[in-house]
């Protein structure tokens, strides 16, 4: 599904050239749940931008669903993002003045074909993340965890090829974070391809495969023998809360 071949990214400021990604290659297959890890400054964000077709590499090849994105122009990349990628951001990035439902429907506005059942789809997506009762709430009426779940529903509304999450738990308390991880694991079980970008080992260990970046290169690419199970962690937290 995703093939990266010697991806390079060099930022040029005047005459100073700063290489950030120095030849990154890996493949991700459909249905995989991959965490990309690395400390800040390792090129993690840059790689995420390239994976999300928000930015182009300065070298190498990136094929997404057999489409070579390197040769696409800005407009084609926009359509590609709309159709193939569902974003979840650390800052949620919801529209303040729109209801949860309208936020979830936002990507459909930019779709080539607006589905006739857009409303129902958005309602279904919100129900799937446990917000059936909160559809007409605005972001400031929702908790951080709920806002992030709205963002996840928004990412899934177009049924994208990959779900790309950038530090999705970074702005959440541990319980809300674990809830988000539980949703991701459930989506993975349902066959969704997920790429999770994080600096946090505890978060990364929920995935099935971890790619560690170091100094703009892949330092480690391993399968997780025993992924952490968010559902049971959540149950444990709830237990603690219930205990007197």
């Amino acid at each position: 599904m995703i093939q990266l071949e010697k991806i390079e990214k060099t930022y040029t400021a005047g005459t100073v050239q700063t290489p950030v990604l120095k030849g990154i290659s890996f493949s991700i297959h459909a249905g995989e749940y991959v965490a990309i890890m690395g400390a800040s400054g390792t090129g993690k964000s840059t790689l995420m931008h390239i994976l999300g077709c928000l930015d182009k590499p300065t070298g190498g090849r990136y094929r997404l669903d057999d489409i070579d994105m390197v040769n696409l122009d800005d407009e084609a990349l926009s359509h590609l993002r709309n159709g193939k990628i569902g974003f979840v951001f650390q800052q949620f990035h919801l529209l303040d003045r729109a209801t949860a439902l309208r936020n979830v429907m936002l990507p459909l506005i930019y779709a080539k074909e607006y589905p006739a059942d857009a409303h129902q789809r958005a309602e279904k997506a919100l129900t799937a993340v446990g917000l059936a009762e909160r559809m007409s709430y605005k972001p400031n009426q929702l908790s951080g965890g709920q806002q992030q779940r709205v963002a996840i529903a928004r990412a899934l509304i177009t049924d994208p090829a990959i779900l790309l999450a950038d530090e999705p738990t970074g702005n959440l308390d541990s319980k809300s974070g674990t809830e988000v991880m539980a949703i991701f694991q459930r989506l993975h079980r349902d066959g969704r391809t997920i790429i999770l970008v994080t600096h946090d080992r505890n978060v990364a260990d929920h995935a099935r495969r971890v790619i560690v970046l170091k100094d703009g290169q892949v330092a480690e690419d391993r399968l997780v023998a025993q992924p952490r199970d968010a559902e049971s962690e959540l149950a444990a937290v709830v237990d603690e809360e219930v205990r007197p």
Binding site: G52, L54, D74, E75, S78, H79, R81, N82, G83, F87, Q91, H93, L95, L106, P107, I109, Y110, A111, R154, T158
Partner: peptide, 16 residues
């Protein structure tokens, strides 16, 4: 700016 960035990420073209 953030709203515009979000819209672009979700698939809005420059023209949009």
């Amino acid at each position: 700016t953030k709203e515009i960035g979000l819209r672009r990420a979700l698939g809005a073209t420059q023209g949009d």
